[in-house]
Design a protein around this nucleic acid. Structure first.
Ligand SMILES: [Mn+2]
Ligand SMILES: [Mn+2]
Ligand SMILES: [Zn+2]
Ligand SMILES: [Zn+2]
Lengths: 170, 170
DNA sequence: GCTTAAATGATAATAGTTATCATTAAAGTT
DNA sequence: AACTTTAATGATAACTATTATCATTTAAGC
């Protein structure tokens, strides 16, 4: 009855990212966001937005659903997916896809950043490098492209996971 | 009976990448590759490798399967997936994932490169920028990471697709 | 040719995500 | 506050890409 889809396997479970404390956002700001997208303000949408701004910075749809399930046992799975997709399309949320793993979402911070991920423990470090950003623009321009987006994900082993996979790749 | 999974929807069908002529690789070189992975040399594996080195540079498992189906009507779908995965794990092939679309594979060229993709027509341009590569190493080192891999995909509109989505994103 | 373990292909299973559609609720309107 | 309209919701089915299963075949060493 009240059993929802089970936890994702693999790296998702051992995900060790530290909880991030972001500046709190008021409900009235959320409501404006929602109205700006041309949508109606619902309990569900407010709850999803609140959930995104506390705890882990990068969460899966599954995790959002589970977080909300305590206070909102009536929350539907489809609603979470639907709204996360909308938020991504409208640019309020960044969607991160790594390998074939479930997509992770994060509320867009004021500053753009990219990710450095540990392939052993799943830790995610956020970084911002203006030199790289400029070079990307330069590359795009050189090929006659108007740049709209980019994905830069660095993978490696963090200092806590030094041993494994050191020489895995040729 | 002889119907295989249908074509993937969306961008995959309008994919306009030009055919790339790579230097031809001999079967004996392929055989060495296969043996180097500790695998047996089979008709199927040779056929997959040959297929990867002609036509489009970036192909889906589906497309590989369809290309082979003419000459190898007995080729199984699972074999294509299995071998592509193995090739990726062993570093002979690069796996490209964009959005939620099916993964694309390409035989690893001698030189590393990244991709610039048109979000309208699907055209893929390969580029290599040593400055960016160095900066990535620098970023990783600064966070105590040992870099093992990275994904850099630039998205935009090419000069042939100037009109659409210009102001889509906030 | 014989042996043995690995490879194959048909098929089922899985995971993540999206579509469908009857029911509910937001937000104007009176 | 009741009424109306239309979007939103949630249960569920459907879909897509990929992986696992397993009986059968085949490569490769003897
Ligand atoms: Mn982030
Ligand atoms: Mn390429
Ligand atoms: Zn780690
Ligand atoms: Zn284009």
């Amino acid at each position: 009855m009240s059993d929802f889809p089970k936890l994702s396997p693999g790296i998702a479970n051992e995900y060790k990212e530290e909880l991030v404390t972001r500046e709190p956002i008021s409900d009235s700001q959320y409501k404006r966001m929602i109205r700006d997208m041309g949508l109606k303000v619902t309990h569900q949408r407010l709850a999803i937005l609140r959930s995104l701004s506390k705890g882990r910075a990068h969460v899966t749809a599954q995790e959002v659903f589970e977080n909300l399930h305590q206070d909102h046992p009536d929350m539907g799975f489809a609603t979470v997916y639907r709204f996360l997709r909308k938020l991504t399309e409208e640019g309020f949320v960044t969607e991160i896809r790594m390998g074939g793993l479930p997509a992770r979402y994060e509320l867009k911070a004021k500053t753009h950043h990219d990710h450095l991920t540990c392939i052993d423990c799943g830790k995610i470090i956020e970084f911002e490098n203006q030199e790289i950003e400029s070079l990307q623009e330069k590359v795009a321009k050189a090929h006659g492209f108007q740049l709209t987006d980019h994905v830069l994900e660095l993978y490696g082993t963090c200092h806590d996971c030094p041993y494994k996979r050191s020489l895995a790749k040729g």
